[in-house]
Design a binder for these strands. Structure first.
Lengths: 88, 88
DNA sequence: TTTTTATTTAGATATTTTTCTAAATATCAA
DNA sequence: TTGATATTTAGAAAAATATCTAAATAAAAA
């Protein structure tokens, strides 16, 4: 919800990789897990942190939970950086 | 030097506040310390992390070390976010 | 209904991070 | 040169983080 949560969420390489995967469209938790050498529990934890930070959304469809990017928080980050650069 | 270092550097509130201070121009380590309720050693550590990440530069002038923003790394972050948003 | 599949939650451990105090280094002033 | 000031480095403790295994929950399939 705050910048801290966002940057903290983005500071982990696994989580950034998850975002890159979601760039091409929604994926279920299991599909995401299959891209990493970690357990489902670990990836679930990372997904929870990303969701908490508002960077992704999860929607349950039957047995699966599909995750999608939500870039509105990213816009806040963009603005913060531009502000820092004095280009705003 | 990598995204990880940059986001990790930005994920701490004290460090973000330091960057905000430097937005208005260079400051010595001591001047920066005076804005926080932490010891000089702690702030020195934060400055080191920011410098390691390439977000600030430090130049020694006699007894003092003046720190300045270096926003070129921020441009990489900007591009990464825009890329994620598919606006690029 | 029972079993299987998808995902999360709980609890534990190892690593990393933040912060402190004390000591070290470098520069300036007397 | 001696003493004071500015800053960093070293080492330690507490808190946060990433990861695992095992257990819990929920939905689908048999």
């Amino acid at each position: 919800m705050a910048f801290g949560d966002t940057f903290k969420a983005l500071s982990d390489p696994t989580r950034r990789e998850i975002l890159n995967l979601l760039k091409d469209g929604p994926l279920s938790a299991g599909e995401i897990v299959s891209h990493f050498p970690m357990t489902g529990a670990t990836i679930s934890h990372h997904l929870s942190i990303l969701q908490q930070a508002g960077i992704i959304d999860g929607e349950k469809k039957g047995k699966y939970i599909y995750y999608t990017l939500n870039t509105t928080v990213m816009d806040d980050i963009l603005r913060w950086i531009l502000e820092l650069k004095g280009e705003n």
